[in-house]
């Protein structure tokens, strides 16, 4: 299709408005001071304008995060819409920063803005990428860790979208368990 008059071009609206946050680990500041809202968008075109403008996760410094959340949900456990929820967590090895991280993050974003999880998309709160020396992490956060059907739908489709091998298991952990853990591992409520 040819757009005759660019001023009449209507952008493609997304189901949700999304907010992209950036976390920079500055030890002289508090956790909340380090969390900054970059921008919000609610069309396909504005999503790409933002995506094309910012650094890929593999170029970020250690300790930095990107978070993409539905407008109105803060990227923290304490938010009303997160506190009963949890996350599908994918832990990458060091080699995967070079090979997979940026691709996985883009696929994650496309799953969110495109509402790829059918009805279960309503359970999605957002997604987070953590860039860490020991291994980067990707997660999709959902609103209620008791919504088994929605969580399993999201986990299965997410794994397919990232083309993870069948035998590779990914786990879902409640924020409650993650925030109260004493050791270095949190038990999985679900896995696919």
């Amino acid at each position: 299709q040819v757009v005759a008059n660019p001023e009449q071009y209507i952008k493609h609206p997304l189901q949700n408005r999304w907010a992209l946050w950036y976390f920079k680990n500055d030890k002289t500041k508090s956790w909340t001071e380090n969390l900054r809202l970059i921008s919000k968008f609610d069309t396909v075109e504005d999503f790409w304008a933002l995506y094309n403008h910012i650094q890929q996760p593999s170029k970020l410094n250690y300790g930095c995060d990107y978070c993409l959340f539905k407008d109105g949900i803060k990227p923290m456990w304490e938010d009303e819409r997160n506190k009963l929820g949890g996350r599908w967590l994918i832990t990458l090895n060091r080699q995967q920063r070079h090979n997979d991280l940026d691709r996985y993050w883009m696929e994650t974003l496309l799953c969110l803005v495109g509402e790829s999880f059918d009805e279960a998309s309503e359970d999605v709160c957002g997604a987070v990428v953590n860039v860490r020396p020991k291994g980067d992490k990707l997660a999709i956060w959902t609103s209620n860790c008791q919504n088994r059907d929605a969580i399993m739908t999201i986990g299965q489709l997410y794994k397919e979208r990232l083309s993870l091998p069948m035998k590779a298991l990914i786990g879902y952990q409640s924020h409650d368990d993650t925030s109260s853990k004493s050791g270095s591992t949190t038990k999985n409520m679900y896995s696919v």
């Binding site: 997304l14 094309n52 496309l110 495109g114 509402e115 790829s116």
Partner: peptide, 20 residues
């Protein structure tokens, strides 16, 4: 109706938007 976009549709706009 829900506004859902599949992967290929979204990817088709990656470089269109940059010139707008």
């Amino acid at each position: 109706a829900k506004k859902r976009y599949d992967r290929e549709f979204l990817l088709g706009f990656q470089f269109i938007s940059a010139s707008m």
